[in-house]
Write a protein that binds this DNA or RNA. Structure first.
Lengths: 337, 337
DNA sequence: TTTATTTACGCAATCGTTACCGCAGACGAT
DNA sequence: ATCGTCTGCGGTAACGATTGCGTAAATAAA
C-alpha cells in the first residue's frame, strides 16, 4: 500500500487538487462544507503530506542538522536533548551527523549540507578542524549556522557557550585554594576555542596568585584515548609531579582517575582533580569528582532557539553574537584539603 | 546566493538538463568529452543535487529515523553511535526523535513517519507504550521497522536485543553466589519486554537455587526519578530489607547508590548491587559497580545493518526474526563477598 | 547507394504540493 | 438591466531531478 496523496483525496471527493490542498490548510477561500468533507476524509485515510514535495515547492525543509564530534559524551547527548526538545516545539526535524573529531568527515558533511537539505545547522567543531572555509560556504549560501560549545572565533555568526575563560579561572583558583602548588592543565586540543579559553583562565589564575606557568604542566592530547592515558601517566610519574589536575574535558578526568588508580596515587591527598564534566555519576565516584558543570541541556536549547529565531530573518541574522551561559563549580571530594 | 541546479549547469554548458543529469551519473549514453566538461563545472560550482527533488522523483529519501525514549543515556547514545556509523557507510541520513517515555509523543512521531519521510525506522519503544498499532501502520505502508533493545513481541519484524532472559538469570545467580539471600529486582516498567524477560531470568534463577520469589521484592517504578528514589528507599528501609539489588536499567542502579549513601548502607557489605549498565565510569564508582554490559554500539550497528539489508527487498524482509547479541557480566566490588 | 544500427543528445512527463490566475455564479448596488 | 464584487472553486505552472522515448547525425552493413 502506498501513501495517499492530495490527488487521491481529490478524486474521491470530486474536487480539484488545489481545492483539497487549500481546504487542508484552512484557506478562507474554501467553504466550510467542503473543508469538513476534506478533513474527514483526510483523517480517515490518515493523509500525511509528502514532506519532499512540500520542501521542494516551498524551498524549506523544516529540518535542521546537528553536527558534533561524538555522541557518547554526556555533554553532547544532553545538548541534543535540549536541541531536540526545541525542535519538536517548532515542528522541526533533527538530523544528526558525527564527525568523530575528523576534519575530512566534517568537511564532507558540511559540504553536503549546502544542498538545501536543512534550513539551518547547529555545529560544534571537531578538535582537528583549523580551516573553517566549509562553514563559511554554508554562510554564503544563506544557511544559518549557530555554533555551540566548540566554536570558531573566525566566523561571524551566533555562538552559544559557557564562560570558558572565567570557569577556567575559577577552577584553577579553587585548586589553589585547596592547597595545590603545581597544577597541570589537560586538554584535547591546542587549537579548540574551549581549550584555549579555559587555558587562558587557568594561566591568569596562576599569575594572579603568583604562581609560574610551566609549559610542561600543560598537556594537549590530540589523539587517541591511549595517547591521553600515556601522557597523563607520564605527567604523574614525573618526580616533580603536579599536585593538582585541571581537566578541561570530562574524558581526561576519567583517564586521570584511572591513571591515579594505576599509580596508587590517592585523590585528593596526592593529587586533586577538577574537571569540566556533565557526568551524572560525579558524586558517586571514588572519590566524588569536583566539577565545572556546564548547563548542557540549556546550551542545546538556547542554540536551537536562536537558530529558529534566525530562520525567519536571514540577513540580519548573520551577526556576530555570543551567548554565554553560566557554568557551576560543584565542590566534591576530589579537591578536598 | 542560491544553490546551483542542473538547469544552471545546463545553461552554462549549452546542454540540456537531462544530458547534464546523465553525465553526472556517468551514463553510457553521454560522450566522454561532455561528461568531463560537466564534471568539471559541477565541481567548480560545488553542485549538490537537491535532495528533495531527488527524493520526490525516486520515492526514496536516503534517510532513516531513530526513535528512542531518551538520549541522555549511555546505552542509547552508544547505540546511536553505531547506527550513525553504518548510516554514514551507506550514505544515509539519520533523523533523531525522542519520545521521553511518552506514548502520545511516540504515537505522533511514528504517525508522522508514515508520510514517506524516511525509508526505514529503528525504534526502541517507550516504557509507556502498550498499544503498537502505530508501528503496525508503518509496517503496512511498507516502511521497514527494526526494533532494538526495547522491542515488542507482538509485531512481526526484526528485533535486535541482548539475551535478556539469560543475562537476568546470570546476574541473579551471581548475587546468590556472592551470598545474597533476599534479592530485589528493580525495573522501570512491568510491561516492557526487556523488563519482563530480565525478570523471568531473575525469577527462574531464584527458583533454581531454591529461593522463593517474593512479590514485594519486585519493584516497578513507572514514573519520575523521584518516584524511583522513594520506592527504592522504602525498599531499603524495610526491617526485612533485601541484601541484594538487581537493577534492570542503569538509572535505577544510580538511584540505588544514592539511596544507600543516604541510608548509610554499605555496598557491598549491607547490600550488593548489580545492574544492566553501559556506564563508562562503572569501575570508578564508590564502590565500583558490577554490571551486565550490553554491546550497545554493536546493537546499534547490527540493527542498522539489518535495516539496510531490508531496504532493498521489502516484502521478504518483513519477517519475524530475533538477533541476539551477548551481554557481559563484569564483576566488580559492588557484589564482592 | 540504400538501409540498418549505433551514438549522443533533447523533449517532455513525472513525483506531490503550492501559488498564481482565472472564472463562473450569486448577490447587491445603481 | 447593467455593472461591480464577493465566494468558491478549478486549471496550470512551477520546485529540481530522473527517465522513457524520440531523433539527428555518424557509422556500419547490405
Amino acid at each position: 500500500m502506498t501513501n495517499t496523496s492530495l490527488k487521491d483525496l481529490a478524486k474521491e471527493l470530486n474536487l480539484s487538487v488545489s481545492t483539497v490542498s487549500r481546504a487542508l490548510r484552512d484557506s478562507h477561500e474554501i467553504s466550510p462544507d467542503t473543508k469538513e468533507k476534506v478533513l474527514i476524509l483526510a483523517k480517515k485515510l490518515n493523509y500525511q503530506p509528502n514532506p519532499y514535495a512540500r520542501s521542494l515547492r516551498k524551498q524549506k525543509s523544516k529540518t535542521i542538522a546537528v553536527v558534533i564530534p561524538e555522541i557518547a559524551n554526556n555533554f553532547f547527548s544532553l545538548a541534543i536533548n535540549g536541541i531536540e526538545s526545541i525542535a519538536q516545539e517548532n515542528d522541526y526535524h533533527v538530523l544528526i551527523y558525527l564527525t568523530h573529531e575528523d576534519y575530512e568527515k566534517e568537511l564532507s558533511i558540511i559540504n553536503h549540507l549546502s544542498s538545501g537539505r536543512v534550513d539551518g545547522v547547529l555545529v560544534s567543531i571537531s578538535s582537528a578542524t583549523n580551516d573553517i572555509r566549509h562553514l563559511e560556504e554554508l554562510h554564503r549560501k544563506d544557511i544559518p549556522v549557530v555554533f555551540f560549545d566548540r566554536i570558531s572565533d573566525n566566523i561571524n555568526t551566533i555562538k552559544v557557550t559557557t564562560d570558558d575563560y572565567n570557569s577556567g579561572y575559577k577552577a584553577t583558583n579553587h585548586l589553589i585554594d585547596q592547597g595545590c602548588k603545581r597544577i597541570a592543565f589537560l586538554s584535547i586540543s591546542s587549537k579548540l576555542s574551549i581549550g584555549v579559553k579555559r587555558m587562558e583562565g587557568y594561566k591568569d589564575a596562576l599569575k594572579d596568585r603568583g604562581i609560574n606557568v610551566e609549559e610542561k604542566l600543560i598537556v594537549h592530547t590530540e589523539g587517541s584515548p591511549e595517547e591521553s592515558h600515556n601522557k597523563i601517566k607520564q605527567l604523574l610519574t614525573d618526580p616533580n609531579r603536579p599536585d593538582g589536575l585541571f581537566a578541561s574535558v570530562e574524558k581526561l578526568a576519567i583517564a586521570s582517575y584511572h591513571c591515579c588508580h594505576e599509580l596508587h596515587l590517592s585523590i585528593p591527598k596526592d593529587v586533586k582533580i577538577i574537571s569540566f564534566s556533565n557526568l551524572e555519576t560525579a558524586s558517586l565516584l571514588n572519590p566524588s569528582l569536583t566539577t565545572i558543570t556546564q548547563p548542557a541541556f540549556e546550551i542545546g536549547k538556547e542554540a536551537a532557539r536562536v537558530l529558529f529565531k534566525g530562520l525567519d530573518k536571514h540577513k540580519t541574522f548573520l551577526l556576530n553574537k555570543s551567548i554565554i551561559l553560566d557554568s557551576q563549580l560543584i565542590e566534591r571530594e576530589s579537591t578536598a584539603k
